[in-house]
């Protein structure tokens, strides 16, 4: 068992707090230019995701990687989440997992 390298649930607002460590976020893909994908975070802000996106990308994509700036993630893992996704629920979870119930996650 190893809990030394968790991936924190983040939205755009929380991403700013985690520059450096591993994070996980779900984005709605807005644009994909080569290796950079612009996505809408679950709290309705824009974030940039770098790396090697798979092709094709579905409407919603989960990325896991290093937060390399306040608004961008260098993704190691991309998972297509399909064309429908409850972003509101996910966003609430981001907040709970970084707030009152952080000890269950980090």
């Amino acid at each position: 068992m190893d809990t030394s390298n968790p991936a924190v649930f983040v939205n755009a607002e929380l991403l700013r707090l985690y520059v450096g460590p591993r994070v996980r976020a779900v984005i709605q893909v807005l644009r994909s230019d080569g290796g950079v994908v612009t996505g809408q975070s679950t709290d309705d802000n824009q974030i940039l995701v770098k790396g090697s996106p798979p092709s094709p990308l579905s409407k919603f994509v989960e990325v896991v990687g290093i937060a390399d700036s306040e608004k961008s993630i260098h993704a190691e893992i991309w998972t297509n989440f399909g064309d429908t996704f409850e972003t509101h629920t996910y966003n609430q979870l981001c907040q709970l997992a970084n707030g009152e119930f952080k000890h269950l996650f980090l």
């Binding site: 989960e62 409850e86 996910y90 996650f105």
Partner: peptide, 18 residues
């Protein structure tokens, strides 16, 4: 197959803990 299950699971974890 439905990726909402991921969020649902962690919400479950929170609820059961609570």
């Amino acid at each position: 197959t439905d990726f909402n299950e991921i969020a649902s699971h962690f919400i479950d974890c929170i609820y059961v803990h609570l």
